[in-house]
Each structure stands twice: as structure tokens, then as C-alpha cells.
Nucleic acid binder design. Structure first.
Lengths: 277, 277
DNA sequence: TTGACAAGTGACCTGTCAGTCATTAGTATA
DNA sequence: TATACTAATGACTGACAGGTCACTTGTCAA
């Protein structure tokens, strides 16, 4: 299991520098100091590696953002917190962010492509939720334009510090983008993206995970977790999933216990969605 | 020469669908109905093909935009005309636009990468020029943010019609973006991109073409052009380049004669820059 | 009809890749 | 020490890539 992590870390560096296609398995294993055969003990294929990388990082950022959008109390601070968490993630995992930007190409495996698209749609949904909450008083016909502008800001400004080595003042950046977003929300009168257009764009998003799927992931995660409180919280959540007994408050508390462990972010996201918290 | 064009057209389709790396020379020649050997009669390598494609389309759009920014009289209409020309180009040459978006990766040949970057910088320069002209009365510290927001709008909204087959109402789109841009220009108080930051980003842009380089391109183009007025205009421009005699008005008129021929857009751009028109 | 020459062909060359598997090294138990 | 087992190795395979070149075809004028 530690080998798997080593490979993921080292491969990430190479992918960010040279791109996915241009990096051979041999290069990765050389960089890890292991043999080519050892690679295939950890991953069934090169595609499975990139797939694991995408899942690992996108689950984290998706659940982070989901938590912020659903749990930030103050409307005032929500947009700032959103931008901050996005850029903080991009900054902390800049190698992955570079891959994500450079490897948008539809040339890659169709399965990987739809995986990225899936996470993109989850993100878009959360941005829309945020826009609807923050700007409920303004003309609703502009909400999809706002979503796209926010996504545009995210992509242009992350380019800045990802590809030029720039000292990043996150606070200034986020305040600047909050102002821009609020300006557009307040004054825009001519939207481009109509409800109808949005319906064309939005392919049906994947179903929510079933209880059985969540249970499976949860059971698997139980083995990885060492920390006693987190382990017990997970165990109790599993029991409640099989045999509902706890009140929402208790469930929420248990989820709170685990959400800061990187390994638990995704399962925590799935459970929040399952319990509609 | 016609063979070259055939290859470029057919390759463009495949590149847009599958990506550059994922398309083999064999596939291209099959799609053209020619042999692999014939490909190498027209292009020295696969890289030279993609390089030719980039030049062909980027020269056109760069010179189109340069002309609009430098020759649109009405401030009112400039921004609209800019957006319109951009999206019109992306729409007309959507296969190329897709390649440009998908193939930003630094994994490609370094020479190709810097070629794209060079055109990107020319475009950025023109956007900056436009921003400085249109918003000379507002706080100048926000001008670089405006440039980046304009680029963000361009990229997000072109995604919409490039990757989802959407009926495009260019007029509504451009009015909408003009409004957004003007709003940001009018009300923004918290810029993020400072003069200093911009200096870090801006690597020295390539030198302007020398008189000799322009002459060489001009002489070569003369052979391709059939239309008598355009041919004579080019010939006169060549004479003036060797032996300055014409007044600016005459030179400008001659340039006007040729600028609508797609083959002449680039040489017309170079000459405009040379004569500082 | 001939011969000269450009245009076009596709089998072939060399290199690289993802992925396999017979073998070996390491380790823990009896 | 012997045995049983897993972890790890790297030479190897087959597929396919970009690029070459000896050869064929087509088209002229003489």
C-alpha cells in the first residue's frame, strides 16, 4: 500500500513535467527506484494509475468544496471561502492541477475523460447552488452566466501561479475575485446562457452512490484508518447505515470527526449526500 | 501545393477528433487517400505539419484582431467587434480551435509550444492596447486584470459552442460579454495583477521581423497570388520596401487592397507593423 | 515508341512503448 | 537448516510509431 503511494507521488511529478502520454512506465519506475514488474503489482495498467490520481485529488477537492458550500453559515464569507479553498487546493497540489489543465484532451481514454467530466459536473452543481443562495434577490436568468464566469476566473487566475512561478497572495486574489463576481451579479442585464442552453449542455449526471456502494467503500476504508476516534466513528456510521438508529445530530457529529482525515473526505461527502445533511 | 492543403485539411479533422499524438501519419494518409510516402513529399515531419497548421490559423486570427484593434474608429463598437471576430474565427475554424484548447500541453515539442505562446503574447498585447484605449479614464491599475478577464471570457464561452453542439447567437454572446467587460472596468477597485506581476509573466516577446524577413515572405507570396490588383499591390509594396517612395496614404491603400485575401493577412500584418500604420 | 523525369507507393527499418512471466531474493515459520 | 510463501526483478514480447527508399506509375516532348 505504501508502494502504491510512492508510485503515485513520483508519477505525479513526471506527469506534471512531461504530460501523461509522454511519460513511460519505465521512467516512473526508474524515478521510484523499483522495477517495472513492481509497478504492475500495484496497478493493473498505466491508465489505472492516472485514474487513481484523478480520483484521489478530485474526491478531495470536490468534497472540500461541497462541505464549504453546504456548511458555511455566513453568506458574506461563502464566496471568499470558496475561492480560497479552490486556489489553496490548486496551490498545494500544483502538480496535479497542471495535469488537470493540460490533459483535458479528449484523446485520452474515454473512461478517464468521463471521469473528469463527472467531477467537473459535481463542481458546477456546487457553484450553481452557491450562486442561487448568494444572489437569490437578483434576476435568476443570469445565474448560469455567473457560474461560467466563476469557472473562467478560476481557470485564468490559476494559470497565473501554476505556470509562472509567482508569489501568491491568496487573500488579495480571493478578495479581488469576490468583488468581480459580486459586480457581475449585481449589474449584469444581458445573460447569454439560458435555462434551455444549460439543459443541452448538462448531460445526465451519474446517479448517486447506492447504500451498498457506500458500505463497500466504508468497509474498505476502515482497514486503512488507525486513529481510534476516527476508526470508531466510521464503525458507528457503518452500523447506522446497516441499522438506522442514530439521530441526525449524532450522524453529523460522527461525520465531523472524520472529515479532516484526507482518507475520509470522500466517504464523508458520500454520507453527507446520503443522509441529506 | 494542393496536396499540402488536402493533407492539412484532413489532418485537422483527425487532430480535432483524436488529438495530435493519438493520430498517426498512416491514419492521415489513409484519410487523404494517399500513401505514406506522399505525406513526406509535402512535409518533412509530423511536427512540421502541426506547425504549419498553427501558423496558418494563428497568423490569420492574429492579423484579423490586430486590424480591428488598430483600425476600428468607434470606441463604442471596438470591444464588440473584437469579441465578434474572435468567436467568428473560433466558430469558422472550430476544428483548429479545439486543437488549440486541447493541445496546450507542454508535453509537445518545445518549439511548437513557444510558437503558440508567441501568438498568445501578440494577442495579449492587442487586448492590452484595446483596454488602454477604451478605459483610459478609469484606474489604470486594473488594466491587466481586465486583460485576463477578457481572456477568461473568451476561453470559457468558446468551450460552450466548441464542445457542445450549440446553436450560436454571436450577437447576443458578444453584447453580453461587452456588458460584462464594461461592468468590470467601471466598478473594479481591487485588482490582483500588478504591473510588477505582469513583468514577471511577460517573457521578452520575439523581435519584430526585419525588413529582409518581410521581403522574403513577400517575394514568396507574390508567386501564389493570381488576382491582378492584389498582385500589383504586393509588387508595389515590395518596391517601396526596397526603395521608399510612396506616401503613407498610398501604402495604407495598397495594404487595404490585399488584407482580405487570406494568403495576405499575415504579410499585411507585418507590413502594418513595419510602417507603424 | 522511346526515354526522361516527376509523382507516388508501401514494404521495411529503427526505435519505443505497455505489459508479461520465468526466475530470484527476501522473510518468516517449522 | 529446510520449507513455504510473497515480493520483486528485468529480459522479453508483440504492437505500433515515425520516417526512409528502392521501386512503380503516369506524363510529357522528341
Amino acid at each position: 500500500m505504501a508502494k502504491k503511494q510512492l508510485i503515485m507521488e513520483k508519477a505525479l511529478e513526471l506527469f506534471a513535467k512531461q504530460g501523461f502520454e509522454a511519460t513511460s512506465v519505465q521512467q516512473i519506475t526508474d524515478h521510484c527506484g523499483i522495477s517495472k514488474g513492481a509497478f504492475y503489482l500495484s496497478f493493473k495498467s498505466k491508465d489505472e494509475l492516472i485514474s487513481a490520481l484523478i480520483d484521489h485529488f478530485m474526491m478531495q477537492i470536490t468534497s472540500d468544496i461541497d462541505y464549504i458550500v453546504k456548511n458555511t453559515v455566513s453568506d458574506e464569507k461563502l464566496l471568499y471561502a470558496f475561492y480560497y479553498k479552490i486556489f489553496e487546493n490548486f496551490n498545494d497540489h500544483s502538480d496535479f492541477a497542471k495535469i488537470l489543465i493540460n490533459e483535458q484532451t479528449q484523446s485520452m481514454n474515454a473512461e478517464l475523460f468521463s471521469k473528469i467530466r463527472h467531477y467537473d459536473q459535481l463542481m458546477e452543481k456546487n457553484i450553481l447552488l452557491m450562486v442561487e443562495r448568494l444572489y437569490s434577490h437578483v434576476d435568476r436568468s443570469i445565474k448560469y452566466d455567473l457560474v461560467y464566469c466563476i469557472k473562467g476566473f478560476m481557470s485564468m487566475y490559476s494559470h497565473l501561479f501554476l505556470f509562472f512561478n509567482i508569489p501568491l497572495d491568496l487573500d488579495v486574489l480571493c478578495h479581488s475575485l469576490v468583488e468581480k463576481t459580486n459586480l457581475l451579479a449585481k449589474h449584469t442585464t444581458l445573460p447569454f446562457i439560458s435555462e434551455e442552453l444549460m439543459r443541452i449542455i448538462e448531460q445526465p449526471c451519474q446517479e448517486e452512490a447506492t447504500k451498498e456502494q457506500i458500505l463497500e467503500i466504508l468497509t474498505q476504508k476502515l482497514e486503512d484508518i488507525e486513529e481510534p476516534i476516527e476508526k470508531e466513528s466510521l464503525l458507528l456510521l457503518k452500523q447506522d447505515l446497516l441499522n438506522p438508529a442514530f439521530s441526525p445530530a449524532i450522524v453529523k457529529g460522527l461525520l465531523e470527526n472524520i472529515r479532516h482525515n484526507p482518507h475520509c473526505k470522500w466517504i464523508s461527502f458520500l454520507l453527507r449526500r446520503y443522509y441529506k445533511l
